[in-house]
């Protein structure tokens, strides 16, 4: 499946298992350096679309008819995260076709959904393979799957497992029950900072060339400020999210942007007028990028984002325009 043709370096398929439902590819809990490199590349957006896992049923270890079934998405990071946490647990892994998207995003879109799960259960002949009729889903699959409908269509009962695969052994020890901690999505420093590369690359591909052009035009200070606004919105916002003021992401981005412009100002040869104009130009850019981080956050609602965008977008545009007019006005004098 991998476009760059080096799929064999990964621990996706390690062999086959002969079962009553035919030959099932087997996988392992082993996590190699090639898998780690793939995860790193995916986070930086390199060949992201290539990290697809073939949908279908996989055997991990030596599963029997009594072994548990875990469902996941056909995104390499999701699949790897599940299997590496199933060390010593003989089990079946059912990979749904989510078009290479992780479980939570796919559930939001409905591709990790009731119909795909029902189709997968039927197509893989899971019923013939097992003596039980239950399947464990990651809790974050719940926005796409109606457990009672799956039961009505297939007879399989869905149990929602923990949010994080690392809690699976403890979940099983508790008799397939989640604790409140296992059910709660976190958004700690590490969870946030691993998202920074994606944000940085997404906006860097426009802002860094623009900064280079500014630099070549002799506008060195503006080149530095443009890069600073990019850093503020894409790195400082994720890193310092709880410490930045307000609940609005646009406001947090603006605050990060202001900090960067203020921190850089001693290095820049600006008078107060020029400083104000630059502030009005670069803060909205940081604010805009900060607002985009709502898409990566784990707690923002659509209603909330709509509300803050109605205020933030015109404010950002107005500030940017005012800043540019201030600079143009001064040139004309």
């Amino acid at each position: 499946m991998s476009m760059n043709g080096n799929e064999n370096q990964f621990t996706t398929v390690t062999g086959t298992l002969n079962t009553s439902a035919g030959q099932i590819p087997s996988t392992s809990a082993e996590y190699k350096s090639a898998d780690r490199l793939a995860a790193w590349k995916a986070r930086w957006g390199i060949h992201r679309a290539a990290w697809l896992i073939k949908p279908g049923l996989y055997a991990l270890g030596a599963p029997s008819a009594a072994s548990p079934v875990f469902a996941t998405a056909n995104y390499k990071l999701s699949f790897d995260n599940l299997r590496r946490n199933l060390k010593g647990i003989d089990s079946w892994i059912l990979v749904l076709n989510t078009k290479g998207i992780n479980v939570w995003c796919a559930a939001g879109k409905g591709t990790f959904g009731t119909l795909e799960l029902v189709r997968s259960i039927m197509e893989t002949g899971l019923e013939k393979l097992l003596e039980h009729k239950s399947i464990i889903l990651p809790q974050l699959g719940a926005p796409g799957v109606a457990a009672h409908r799956v039961k009505a269509y297939t007879g399989f009962s869905v149990t929602y497992g923990p949010v994080r695969a690392e809690d699976i052994p403890e979940f099983m020890r508790l008799g397939n029950k989640t604790s409140p901690e296992m059910r709660e999505v976190r958004f700690g420093f590490f969870d946030r900072i691993i998202l920074a590369p994606v944000e940085f690359v997404q906006f860097g591909k426009y802002i860094l060339p623009a900064a280079l052009i500014l630099y070549l035009l002799g506008l060195k200070a503006d080149a530095v400020l443009a890069a600073g606004a990019l850093l503020a919105g894409s790195v400082l916002v994720p890193a310092f999210l709880p410490r930045l003021p307000g609940r609005s992401f646009a406001l947090k981005g603006a605050a990060a942007g202001f900090s960067v412009v203020a921190a850089l100002s001693p290095l820049l040869d600006f008078d107060l007028y020029q400083f104000c104009a630059r502030t009005l130009i670069y803060i909205p850019i940081a604010s805009f990028i900060g607002l985009e981080f709502t898409g990566s956050s784990t707690y923002t609602s659509l209603s909330g984002v709509k509300k803050e965008m109605r205020i933030a977008m015109p404010a950002q545009a107005l500030a940017l325009l005012t800043g540019l007019l201030m600079l143009a006005f001064r040139r004309l004098l």
Partner: peptide, 22 residues
Amino acid sequence: CGACALNCPVQAITVKKGTGCA
């Protein structure tokens, strides 16, 4: 996220489901 409304077997929950993404 809409998980509760979708998984409520008696439709006691309503929420305008969506992704909080600018």
